[in-house]
Design a protein around this nucleic acid. Structure first.
Length: 887
RNA sequence: GGGCGGUUAGCUCAGUGGGAGAGCACUCGCUUCACACGCGAGGGGUCGUUGGUUCAAAUCCAAUACCGCCCACCA
């Protein structure tokens, strides 16, 4: 980009208004300067102010992450709302921070180490963590700079990290409390095991997929040797861990089998036939092999029948157990399946195999098939607190937008299972539980949760070792809305001032991971909701409507977009596209729209400055002398009312579109053009009104596009920065329906004149005579200079010679036929108008002739229909007359 | 198996009961004294399909088709 940039010398505010603005807006120099300013003078908050509080905590990005479009989307919305509220007089806190992202970061650092040929075990726990912290210091926080580049008006002095001392204490406090309330417990359960990263995963971290596999029907011989029972399975390699065969209690087919013993194929072991309601009679053979250690359903059935639960698959997903015959020992689970199948066939216990779609769980991080294994882990009992959240959602204590996601939120909570919070990782909050050699558990007391048990004098006589596991990442981010504000210190002024927070803004894809868990933690630990509203937005998809992902390489890098178009243009594209939680397909044309809009605004400012070379004086005396002035002030009030309303209901996309339309189509296209005659005459009232309206426009737009608006505000000589200015309020006295109607007449006249000019092939810059007739003639006459300027015409009382007429509501315009005109084409077009009018008339007459319509429809609708009919009739007559005149 | 969203102009999308809109693309004309990242004048749609409710349906209801997403322990 070799566009010449302005000089960067410091200019005092009194000179700023005379600063030359480039013809084309160059966002880069401007944005860089404001980024620096907002970092040097962040939008800090005062916890003791009298202003009402407004607070949004950002979804903390991964500490080592890079800004992607999802962040850009989130933070644009967050910043827009925060800036809006700040200007509305709120003490508005944009609370920034980062997440340690346990498994993601650990996998990433391990990968880096692997390239050096080092594993985490080579370094040991302490050495490894040192490396992760080094990595965090080096790369962590890059994303904060990227958020700053986006224009985030955060209070950077309050930046928090989930592994900060204070936030780590919060996590510990949480666990200790849950433990002593009996809600955190250690239990042996079936968990999702990722054999690659060697850790358990919560259900949410497992992606369900369907793979083509086989359904095997096996023969389990009864002890008597004469009969058999057949079972269906997709995992024959797990038969060695079988503890029973189960059938449904009502299943007549197996009535005589229940209680008898069957032999597990390929072994000499016998297991009983039991009954359980969980068995589906219709599926497979109606008989199910029960393997408590390798299947959640089987585990539950095993619990009910007190079955043992031996494992035959180890942490590396290999068959290792005394129960496994030698020839299968050490085989990988998938290899084992084929080998076992062959052996079963040989033994004659394999009845059939058929192709079958097998559900498979994949680790979100490593994409490795997850192995359900039996393991002792820490769980959190969420039963009661989920109910409390459901109540909060039902009573409207928390409101989810759009509403349909409230149902998603609710349904998940209603079917929630206990949360496995322990992870076999090193990067994270190590679990504050200690064990003595006998395996007894020691957890710090509630009144001193930060005291390690191995430092506790009471246990000095014991050999205590701390649990090596760490907590699930979400077991710290669930506290984010209050841990960032000082909790567990409930006397912290920020906690007191800003909690509960106002709105939570995030993508619907983390409702379960994050939103619901914050809701639970909020009620559980603070006794209150963590936020009043949840604003969920959609995902940003690529041009083809596919999810963006690193592996597909179809991602759009927001930083590249900013580098090419500027952050305001990107922000514009993000808010423009946002509607009702819908996914948005990436479309670069929206960024160009933003870029073009910014340029338009920039040039409108340049124009305004030509007449406001002393800056803007908002106190200047201004009379509403001209129709354009009265009109734009009236339209401005409507824009302010609409936009305020839309932002208050979080409809940022509609607010953006409303302002785009107002600024471009009303202010630039009509007002600036219509005001030119008065401005050229030096009308001081019009100048003052131009200044006022433009100032309000900058304020209205500022939350959406903060850079250019701040720059222009400053360029007009305002000393306080725009971010701290007051948002416009509606002034009802300025709403002027008459002015709007009259200006509409003027617009009709201008458009019709231009249309006639085009029809008659008259050069755009050639001034031509025009005669006006009709009901609204007086309005036009009163504003003759405006019409003459906008349409390049000279009003006359009559036209000599051949002429062309155009009929619009309340007006007839006649133009001399000076240029060449394609009469046939003109007539054809008028005929088309006639046909359409005739249709309209017929329709209206039919409607008005319908007694049901006249009786049932609201009076104003009927009146409007009558007015429309009259108007159409008038237009029709006029056009017919002008056509006749031509002939 | 259950739930949700989408289907409107060539493209990307707004619009949720009273005569269909935007941006881009397209046609024609403009170096008009803020802006060619612009200005002006235009062309283009039986609002997926079928049925219903209503004086009135893109909009509400019910089916249906296609596209997409989420949830789920029939092995």
């Amino acid at each position: 980009m070799d566009t010449p940039t302005e000089t960067t010398e410091t200019i005092s505010s009194s000179q700023q208004s005379s600063r030359e603005l480039t013809k084309q807006y160059n966002p880069f120099e401007v944005e860089d300067r404001w980024v620096k300013r907002w970092v040097d003078e962040p939008f800090t908050v005062d916890a003791h102010s009298d202003k009402p509080a407004f607070c949004i905590v950002i979804p903390p990005p991964n500490v080592n992450g890079n800004l992607h479009l999802g962040h850009a989307f989130d933070n644009t919305i967050i910043d827009t709302l925060t800036r809006y509220k700040r200007m509305k007089g709120f003490e508005a806190l944009y609370q920034p921070g980062m997440d340690h992202a346990g498994i993601t970061t650990q996998v990433q650092v391990e990968r880096m180490l692997a390239s050096e040929g080092v594993s985490r075990y080579d370094l040991g726990r302490e050495g490894f963590l040192k490396r992760v912290w080094e990595w965090k210091e080096q790369y962590g926080g890059i994303i904060l700079g990227q958020l700053q580049r986006l224009g985030a008006s955060a209070d950077w002095s309050r930046t928090r990290f989930t592994m900060d001392v204070g936030l780590s204490q919060a996590v510990r406090h949480q666990f200790v409390k849950l433990y002593h309330e009996g809600l955190a417990y250690k239990g042996e359960r079936i968990v999702n095991w990722d054999p690659v990263s060697q850790t358990t995963l919560s259900d949410l971290e497992v992606d369900r997929e369907e793979r083509l596999g086989k359904l095997y029907t096996l023969r389990y011989p009864l002890a008597d040797g004469n009969t058999e029972i057949r079972i269906a399975t997709v995992r024959p390699e797990t038969i060695f861990a079988d503890q029973a065969v189960a059938v449904h209690p009502d299943d007549e087919r197996f009535r005589d089998f229940v209680g008898k013993q069957v032999r597990i194929p390929l072994t000499d072991r016998f297991i009983p036939i039991i009954t359980d309601e969980a068995v589906e009679m219709d599926f497979g053979t109606g008989a199910l092999k029960i393997t408590p250690a390798h299947d959640p359903t089987d585990f539950d059935i095993g619990e009910r029948h007190n079955l043992a639960r031996p494992s035959v698959i180890d942490l590396n997903a290999k068959l290792t157990s005394d129960l496994v015959p030698t020839q299968f020992q050490g085989l990988d689970r998938f290899t084992a399946r084929d080998v076992v199948e062959a052996a079963l066939a040989e033994e004659g216990t394999l009845v059939t195999t058929q192709d079958y779609t097998v559900p498979l769980g994949l680790s979100q991080r490593t994409k490795e098939p997850v192995e359900p294994i039996l393991s002792e882990q820490w769980f959190v009992n969420t039963d009661a607190i989920a109910q409390r959240v459901l109540e909060g959602l039902d009573t409207g204590d928390i409101t989810v937008h759009p509403e349909r996601y409230g149902k998603v939120n609710r349904d998940w909570l209603a079917n929630l299972r206990h949360w496995n919070v322990s992870r076999q990782l090193w990067w994270g909050h190590q679990i504050p539980a200690w064990y003595d050699p006998e395996g007894n558990i020691y957890v710090p007391d509630m009144d001193n949760p930060d005291l390690d048990c191995d430092d506790d004098p009471r246990y000095a006589h014991l050999e205590l070792t701390q649990d090596p596991d760490v907590f699930d990442t979400w077991f710290s981010s669930n506290l984010w809305p209050f841990s960032t504000l000082g909790w567990p210190n409930t006397d912290d002024p920020y906690f007191k001032k800003f909690y509960p927070t106002s709105v939570l803004v995030t993508g619907y894809d983390i409702i379960f991971f994050w939103v619901a868990r914050m809701e639970m933690a909020g009620y559980q630990f603070t006794g209150e909701k963590p936020f009043s509203d949840v604003l969920l937005h959609g995902l940003v998809l690529d041009e083809q409507g596919q999810k963006m992902s690193k592996s597909k390489g179809n991602g759009v890098d927001p930083l590249e977009v900013i580098a090419e178009f500027g952050a305001d243009a990107l922000r514009f594209a993000m808010t423009y596209a946002s509607t009702g939680g819908q996914d948005i397909r990436w479309d670069g044309r929206r960024v160009e729209m933003g870029r073009n809009f910014n340029n338009k605004l920039w040039n409108a400012a340049r124009f305004a400055m030509m007449y406001l070379d002393d800056g803007i004086d908002l106190d200047a005396n201004a009379q509403l002398e001209t129709l354009p002035d009265r009109w734009i002030l009236s339209r401005l009030q409507r824009a302010v009312a609409d936009v305020t309303d839309l932002l208050d209901t979080y409809d940022i996309g509609a607010a953006n579109r409303r302002l785009y339309d107002f600024v471009w189509s009303e202010f630039c296209d009509w007002y600036l053009e219509a005001a030119k005659p008065a401005l050229r005459e030096g009308n001081t009232s019009t100048k003052a009104i131009l200044g006022r309206v433009f100032t309000d426009i900058l304020k209205l737009l500022h939350p959406l596009i903060p850079f250019i608006t701040s720059e222009l505000y400053e360029a007009f000589g305002f000393e306080t920065q725009l971010g701290w200015a007051t948002y416009p309020e509606v002034d009802d006295k300025l709403i002027n329906p008459d002015a709007e109607q009259h200006f509409k007449n003027l617009q009709d006249a201008v458009t019709a004149s231009r249309n006639l000019r085009t029809e008659a092939n008259i050069a755009p810059n050639q001034e031509i005579p025009l005669v006006i007739g009709g009901n609204a003639k007086q309005v036009i006459d009163d504003n003759a200079t405006v019409l003459e300027s906008l349409a390049r015409v000279k009003l006359q009382t009559e036209v000599k010679g051949a002429s062309l007429s155009q009929i619009v509501p309340d007006l007839e315009l006649t133009l001399p036929l000076e240029g060449l005109i394609d009469i046939d084409a003109w007539q054809a077009r008028q005929q088309k108008r006639l046909a359409s009018l005739q249709k309209d008339i017929a329709k209206s007459e039919k409607k008005l002739g319908n007694a049901k319509f006249v009786d049932n429809a609201p009076a104003e609708v009927v009146a409007e229909e009558k007015r429309r009919l009259e108007e159409s009739k008038g237009l029709l007559a006029g056009i017919e007359a002008s056509l006749a005149q031509l002939n």
